[in-house]
Amino acid sequence: MLSVNHLSKTYAAGDKALDDVTFTIPSGQVVGLIGPSGAGKSTLIRCINRLVEPTSGSIQLGDTTITGLSTSELRAVRRRIGMIFQEYALVERLTVMENVLSGRLGYVSFWRSFFRKFPAEDVQKAFALLARVGLTDHANKRADALSGGQRQRVGIARALEQDPQLLLIDEPTASLDPKTSRQVMRLLLEMCNERGLPAIINIHDVVLARQFTERIIGLQAGKIVFDGPPSELDESVLTRIYGEEDWKTLEHDSEAA
């Protein structure tokens, strides 16, 4: 379970990216985070594993308070949180397998990781995950030799290799075509459901968000302006989040999809 209390973030430049954000995610729930560009979605996600240092407020994962941990404690909690990025963020010049195994870095000693001698269970898990995302044959390829959809699946495998208790997913489909986007979203959902894994998916595509998540949080200028099931996400709510626009066409898309 994740709970975020009164979280605020002001960047050094003075941008108030998050303003008193509070919500709770019970285990197994997949939440879609939507909002216009610059609303603070990425900032929120990055505050949770403290890639971005929050200015005030607290974050709790299970019974660990993430805000205020020392560096070594922070490492221990980061390995419990898997993260998936928009630009895949694979280490391009490492092999696919090394990228997946890097999910175990928080668990193994430096020398083990340096010589790529990971424990047998870790290697087996990595192979199993690669099989699950359909990339068994690509294990020894370099990450930059893969297509976008394949890279994102490696990113998913890396995050799950961590055995996470929470997934943070920042625009997983923004760099992918519509078909691959749906495949990747479906895969993510299946993975979360198989493991009862809670997740925050930060997503631009309202149609995808509606289709794949069970709860939606709308962010606007750093504040939560909507928090409810996708069915309540009507025209007036969309206008509140994104501003005036002809939302009818969107409804249409959604039915077509």
Partner: peptide
Amino acid sequence: ISSFPKTWKRP
């Protein structure tokens, strides 16, 4: 899971 290889060597 046990059906998968236990070791992996970087090419």
